[in-house]
Design a binder for these strands. Structure first.
Lengths: 96, 96
DNA sequence: ATATTAGTTTCATGATAATCGAACAATTAA
DNA sequence: TTAATTGTTCGATTATCATGAAACTAATAT
């Protein structure tokens, strides 16, 4: 696996693109209101889209550093990484 | 001209997409550091891209409500709309 | 052992987005 | 009146993105 060396602006663009989507905005809002980790499945249910699409959005958020993931059994739990939001988008979560 | 009725999330996505681009990030940073309006031309010079592309980015920022424009003679001056940043991306400009 | 459940990966597709070059419009200078 | 300057618009092209369907993996349940 090749380690990509990203400039600060490149990271920033990846993060902003990750947030700039209606579905992912919904996911972020759910996670924020829930204040803690959530089951991927229960999030997906409320979005009314295919699970492959949900999985894609989770990956996008994770690769942007906006979430962390914990696997337990056959379930997977997602949680917001508040530090990343604080660093690149301070105050953003409060506007949701 | 049809007036579009946008939901808050739709506005939000338009704003986030507008910010999620390296060129526009450069433009925003320039405007912010300059603290005040700038000539479109002098911004364009530093970006090393065609003026049609620069014009496209300016339009994207303006339509997202992130800038205002003033025309004076054959020049055009752009300025950040700090209120919009404050409302949707509070603290963001300080991270640049 | 087999079936079920939760999630990922891959492939194809349609939709947006970024860029350039050329033509255009408006303003100012010669 | 004719240049030159500043910026916009249009058309074409390439690249990226969001989505669904199907096949797959891993873990649990029967």
């Amino acid at each position: 696996m090749i380690i990509e060396q990203l400039t600060d602006d490149e990271s920033r663009v990846i993060i902003l693109k990750a947030v700039a989507d209606p579905m992912r905005l919904k996911i972020i809002r759910m996670l924020y209101n829930h204040r803690g980790e959530m089951n991927c499945g229960e999030i997906g249910e409320q979005l009314n889209i295919q699970k492959s699409t949900v999985s894609y959005h989770f990956r996008t958020l994770r690769e942007a550093g906006l979430t962390t993931t914990r696997k337990s059994g056959q379930n997977k739990y997602v949680e917001l990484r508040l530090e990343t939001f604080e660093q690149y988008l301070p105050g953003f979560l409060n506007t949701l």
